[in-house]
Design a protein around this nucleic acid. Structure first.
Length: 361
DNA sequence: AAAGTACTCAACCGCTCTGAA
DNA sequence: CTTCAGAGCGGTTGAGTACTT
């Protein structure tokens, strides 16, 4: 049953000086208005929104008509169902890739609109902020400037710098001055989120290992591996022996989720979002964030035998090169100058220079 | 049951982009 | 080249609902 129409804000029309004095209606749409709009689209297609008002069909501005169609009336919309875990995963992945380009992200989610994605992300941010018991950060210039004119060729061709994790605006992690004040780039939460959610893992095993306190690299598929998203791997950006390994305390994790001795978390024992949200909370110190080493269980028959869920099928239906494209676009961090690679989170070597953990070979 | 809080989502605003004149 | 209007996008708001205390 469809929920009762929500009360829109600023209901009631007002005079629109630019519209020739005719009252412009705002606020919630009625079923009659929706039908008029549908009829217009049937006749003219989803365009000429302004003509709806100019022809006297509806006392709504074209902008409002377009929005109503795009967000509510389009026949292919998934209405009334929450984002699935896989949709969440896609959003997180693509948000890390594209930033707050909701329309672009929504293009990868059939039946979802930019508004849906935006609302989902906003809700998620609030939830995370609450979990962190910290207010959302003051809006960064970086995000404010999303509307600022950027060189067109660079905006689309360059993904956000690796260190500019968009999630939470890096809010909750202060610079760790214990590293001599040199580590000025806070490791983006998104990296951890990505790993926690294991967006490349199609095995369903959900095993995530934590081994250190490093940012990650995404490895391209190794030779001979299928050129699919599942071949992507994450690995520490720096040699393990260059870093201290913090003792990790996961007070919030259900005991059954953590194998204390192996250091692996059974992410499958809790839903992805909860696990993901827990991560920032349980980190003892900013730069002591553990990294999570992807454990592709190629050889684990038991894991392979686990039934695939609908989430996996969802990914199967995505264009096979979707994530390859995304990975291809991951910016290569600048090559480090010798000797300072341990100083900053982003001072990591190019992918080719990153040592592949033996576990992946 | 009431009050408070969190969540969802529709719809607005302001701005940028784009193409036609 | 400039102007202008329409389309599109991202940010924000606030009402209604769900959940918790």
């Amino acid at each position: 049953m469809a929920p009762a129409p929500r009360g829109g804000r600023r209901t009631g029309g007002r005079r629109d000086a630019a519209g020739g004095g005719e009252a412009v209606r705002k606020g919630p749409w009625t079923a009659e208005e929706d039908e008029v709009l549908r009829q217009h689209v049937r006749t003219h297609g989803p365009r000429d929104w302004s003509s709806i008002r100019s022809k006297g069909l509806l006392p709504r501005i074209g902008k409002s008509c377009r929005l109503r169609w795009v967000n509510k009336l389009r026949p292919d919309l998934k209405t009334g169902c929450k984002f699935s875990a896989e949709e969440e995963r896609v959003v997180i992945e693509l948000q890390a890739q594209f930033g707050n380009k909701w329309a672009r992200i929504a293009a990868y989610l059939p039946g979802r609109t930019d508004n849906d994605v935006k609302n989902f992300w906003s809700t998620r941010q609030k939830r995370l902020a609450r979990l962190l018991r910290a207010p959302l950060p003051a809006r960064s210039n970086q995000h404010r400037s999303s509307k600022a004119k950027a060189p067109p060729s660079s905006v689309e061709s360059q993904a956000p710098p690796f260190h500019q994790g968009p999630c939470l605006d890096q809010a909750s992690f202060e610079v760790d001055n214990s590293l001599g004040g040199q580590c000025c780039e806070v490791a983006p939460l998104m990296e951890y989120q990505n790993v926690a959610l294991d967006p490349y893992d199609q095995t369903g095993c959900g095993l995530l290992g934590f081994e250190g306190a490093l940012p990650l690299h995404v490895f391209p598929p190794a030779d001979g591996e299928a050129s699919s998203s599942s071949a992507a791997r994450l690995a520490p950006a720096l040699p393990l022996d260059q870093h201290q390994y913090p003792l990790l305390d996961f007070p919030g994790l259900p005991k059954r989720c953590v194998d204390v001795f192996s250091g692996f978390v059974d992410a499958g024992a809790m839903d992805g979002l909860a696990f993901q949200e827990l991560l920032p909370v349980v980190q003892p110190a900013p730069m002591m964030m553990p990294f999570f080493c992807m454990e592709r269980a190629h050889n684990d028959d038991a894991i392979k035998a686990e039934p695939r869920d609908a989430a996996d099928d969802f990914f199967d239906e995505l264009p096979p090169d979707l994530f390859n494209d995304a990975l291809d676009q991951l910016p290569l961090p600048p090559s480090p100058s010798r000797g300072d690679e341990s100083l900053t989170c982003r001072s990591v070597c190019s992918l080719d220079e990153v040592p592949r953990p033996a576990a992946f070979d």
